[in-house]
Design a protein around this nucleic acid. Structure first.
Length: 512
RNA sequence: GGCAGGGUAGCUCAGCUGGUUAGAGCACGGCACUCAUAAUGCCGGGGUCGAGGGUUCGAGUCCCUCCCCUGCUACCA
């Protein structure tokens, strides 16, 4: 079976999971579930980035040891992913012993394979304590940090280890030229090309002040082991999660896809490939940089900083509806908005009225007109027309042009709309009154059940529980998740015993 | 400031190399139907295509200028 190793970014452990984290994990989960349903051997990795100054500071503010603090955060993230039905196979934490040793091994390997790539340099400049950063000329306004104008900038000298990123310019140029789909969407790719063209700079990869970090394995000239810069620690998680450097890590690496936010494209498409190249290790096959969900609408627009509680969003219409809404409303290659108004509109229009009611009316008619057992009947124009939407769905989902999950859902709903039109055009309630139309009636009923069965399969990555509920109401055998999304033509509903259950997407009652 | 992308119906967006009355979904109005979660289907109202010039027989679609929005412009993550 073809392997498919997909990762999300690991979230920074200085706060609880929020909408932005959830959007990425849900999107990556849909990609993982889709690939399982087209027969891939999927390994889905997510995790937490637990080192760094800010984590240590936040822990201290709460009177906790860093490790105790991140243990609590990790538990909350994992609990949220369980709530959201994120089907991850592995949850990596950068404080895991295996990760720490893996990072050390990677750094040592870079030093061994590319001894010229690490060098010590004294950095001298204005340091802002508020930012924990050296500031450049253009970031200083009237002698103060633009972000922290009340703080005094300090002229500071620090001797750090540097990584010779500049050496990899032509390597990166060849990478981007030779693999046009290495980084998508196109807009992100173009930004990175522009950045590479403008010239790269070497990056400092250790910090002398940083205690909550993986000690950089190579001692400085004065004998100190500085803390490893958080990104040099975090990026390798995708590799260390495979067991690197021990065991059968080569069975999983390289990753097939890193799903990341557009804000960290540079680290993933430039720094990470350079690190791997320096270590003479294979590069990930593809990067997908998704956009962001913004909060909009009455409840959010006025006061800045108001957050959406994920638990509220889930409680409103259930997990599956929330997953559906986010991925339908927010293009996965761009930004979009969350608002309760839109959520309610889409729940009613798309889920309750269009899909839920189509299932409801179809199943009711199978029960009423043909005794609840799906008749044997051949393909119809409905099956034929659906084929176009099914291929559009796969084109959006399988990565050939990126991962346009919203377009996958659009394709399914074009089909759902066709289902409702089909019912009205066939008017089974009329066919049922005329014994001479028995064949047409049976053909119509069977076509509708196949039609819904396809929807159940195509929607299973997005709404696992609702898809299964529909699958069961149709009387289909086995579980929907074990079906092959790329073999829908084979669906034959003959003999399935339908059962009309509770509405798939119940509407709220007045005043509720 | 530089580079890139965008400003099209109330909302989210399609509109390829310029060509008949500018489209879709949702929302809204009317009609039809009754299998269904008062659901669905059909029809319809609604747009100075950011502003102003220009090229052209003809521009949302090309050129110029301007206004506005977004992203990138590297070592918080």
């Amino acid at each position: 079976m073809t392997r498919f190793y997909v990762t999300t970014a690991i979230d920074y452990a200085n706060g609880d999971p929020h909408l932005g984290h959830a959007f990425e994990k849900i999107g990556a989960d849909v990609i993982a579930r889709y690939h399982r349903m087209v027969g891939r051997d999927v390994h889905f990795l997510t995790g937490l980035d637990e080192h760094g100054q800010k984590v240590a500071q936040t822990a201290a503010d709460r009177g906790l040891e860093p490790q105790a603090f991140v243990d609590g955060i990790a538990a909350r993230f994992q609990s949220m992913w369980t709530t959201l039905n994120i089907s991850y196979d592995q949850f990596i934490r950068t404080t895991d012993a295996t990760h720490k040793s893996g990072v050390r091994a990677l750094i040592e390997r870079i030093a061994e394979k590319s001894p010229d790539d690490f060098y010590e340099k004294t950095y001298e400049g204005w340091y802002c304590v508020g930012c924990e950063l050296f500031k450049r000329e253009n970031e200083i306004e009237e002698g103060h940090c633009a972000i922290h104008p009340t703080r005094q900038l300090q002229w500071t000298k620090e001797r750090n280890w540097f990584f010779r990123l500049t050496k990899y310019r032509s390597f990166l140029e060849r990478l981007f030229a030779g693999r046009p789909d290495f980084l998508l969407p196109e807009s992100r790719r173009n930004e990175m090309l522009a950045l590479i063209e403008s010239g790269l700079e070497d990056i400092s990869i250790t910090r002398s002040r940083l205690s909550w970090a993986i000690p950089f394995p190579i001692a400085s000239s004065d004998g100190e082991h500085q803390g490893t810069w958080v990104w040099f620690d975090a990026l390798p998680n995708y590799l260390t999660a495979t067991g690197y450097p021990d065991g059968a890590w080569r069975n999983r690496w390289p990753a097939d896809l890193h799903v990341i936010g557009k804000d960290i494209t540079r680290l993933h498409s430039i720094v990470w490939p350079a690190m791997l190249q320096a270590a003479e290790l294979p590069l990930p096959r593809r990067l997908w940089a998704h956009g962001f969900v913004h909060l909009a609408g009455e409840r959010f627009s006025k006061s800045a900083g108001v957050r959406l509680e994920l638990s509220d969003a889930v409680a409103r219409f259930g997990v599956d509806a929330f997953r559906y809404f986010l991925l339908r409303e927010v293009p996965f290659d761009d930004d979009g908005n969350f608002s309760w108004e839109r959520f309610e509109d889409r729940y009613n229009a798309d889920l309750a009225n269009a899909l839920g009611n189509l299932a409801s009316r179809s199943i009711a008619m199978v029960e009423k007109y043909v005794g609840g057992v799906v008749p044997t009947a051949g393909q119809t124009l409905l099956d034929e027309a659906d084929a176009g939407d099914v291929s559009a769905y796969h084109a959006a989902m399988d990565g050939r042009d990126g991962f346009l999950l919203h377009e996958g859902l659009q394709a399914v709903w074009r089909s759902v709309a066709r289902g409702n039109e089909y019912v009205d055009r066939q008017a089974p309630w009329k066919l049922a009154k005329d014994p001479g139309q028995r064949v047409a009636l049976e053909e119509t009923m069977a076509a509708l059940v196949r039609h819904l069965a396809r929807h159940a399969v195509l929607l299973a990555p997005f709404m696992p529980a609702k898809a299964q509920a529909l699958w069961e109401q149709l009387g289909a055998p086995g579980t929907v998740i074990s079906q092959r999304a790329d073999r829908l033509q084979a669906i034959d509903a003959s003999g399935w015993n339908v059962t009309k259950g509770a509405p798939l997407f119940p509407k709220e009652r007045e005043g509720a």
